[in-house]
């Protein structure tokens, strides 16, 4: 009773794709000529060993005085906890100011760049600016522009984060402007409102919740980025991390990393719940983007 069976489609493309990936993998591994691949098998053991030392530091009595290298006179474990926490606050402050700068500059610019609100042809220039900034790593702003002007200070870090945030925030903001319902805008314009009034009355109320969620999200991203700038010399937790780990002071590194993890997770949680409130509490989200506005961290694309 069996009828003709259709032939299975060729699996060649999938197989070739897999082989291609494998070839790329091997090629890249081979081309990485400075890598000591023979050390790879030992890595898990080594890392576990260092993790154990870190855990020792974390578990030590904060009043006890550590022994060994790299201990300043009078230092206790408690001092290390305190310094880590203090510098973490530095980093968060840097990230916050950077976000505020990025948000307040990108917000007006986005209105001049969105297709449905831009008053003039300036929008192409602004879009170009957003895209350009997004393609440059924040570290570049820091070393080429901010460090020379502001010196090795957290201000330089905050400024670098601020300028870098303009790109991503600008793009996301203009996207949420372009996604608004055009009806209210038409109605307001029909009543004889000026451009600025139209923006205020018809556009801002529609896109503000989503945009504020983007700001908070960017703040979370900036906290991580500020650590990078700290390593370059902008201060904050990045500096401490680089000193401590660079000198292989594992006990202290454990304490510092734990502070970073805990504080970051707490700030993330607060920020996420505020974002959730903003989106679901005061206004319903138009699209399904919900409280994860930009699911992708530090970004060039969205």
């Amino acid at each position: 009773m069996s009828t003709t069976r259709p032939k299975a489609p060729s699996k060649l493309p999938a197989t070739l794709g897999m082989l291609g990936m494998l070839a790329l993998l091997i090629l890249c591994a081979v081309m990485l000529e400075r890598a000591n691949w023979d050390r790879l098998p030992g890595v898990p053991g080594e890392v576990l060993g260092y993790l154990a030392k870190m855990a020792e530091g974390v578990a030590s009595d904060p009043r006890a005085e550590p022994t060994g290298r790299g201990v300043a006179p009078g230092d206790t474990y408690g001092t290390w906890w305190w310094i880590a926490f203090d510098k973490m606050i530095d980093s968060i402050a840097m990230a916050w100011i950077g976000t505020v700068i990025g948000a307040s500059l990108s917000f007006p610019l986005a209105f001049l760049a969105a297709n449905n609100t831009a008053p003039g042809p300036l929008r192409f220039a602004i879009r170009g600016l957003f895209n350009g900034i997004r393609a440059i790593p924040d570290l570049v702003f820091a070393i080429l522009v901010m460090l020379p002007i502001f010196g090795l200070t957290p201000t330089a870090g905050a400024m670098a984060l601020g300028v870098n945030s303009i790109g991503t925030l600008g793009k996301l903001t203009l996207e949420s402007i372009e996604a608004i319902d055009p009806g209210p805008m038409e109605a307001v314009r029909a009543s004889g409102a000026t451009w600025l009034q139209t923006m205020r009355v018809a556009v801002v109320p529609q896109m503000l919740p989503e945009t504020m969620a983007f700001w908070l999200y960017r703040f979370e991203v900036n906290i991580r980025a500020s650590a990078v700038l700290g390593v370059l010399g902008a201060g904050g937790i990045g500096k401490v991390l680089s000193d401590v780990i660079g000198h292989r002071l594992w006990e202290r590194a454990g304490i510092t990393l734990l502070v970073v993890i805990v504080v970051t997770v707490i700030v993330d949680q607060i920020s996420a719940s505020v974002r959730h409130r903003i989106i679901h509490g005061s206004s319903s989200s138009r699209r399904g983007r919900a409280d994860e506005p930009e699911p992708l961290p530090v970004t060039v694309t969205a």
């Binding site: 069996s2 009828t3 003709t4 069976r5 259709p6 299975a8 489609p9």
Partner: peptide, 15 residues
């Protein structure tokens, strides 16, 4: 699987 598809008359759609 082909037999089952045959019973419901859509063998030709198998792939």
């Amino acid at each position: 699987a082909f037999d089952a598809l045959e019973r419901v008359g859509i063998v030709e759609k198998a792939w």
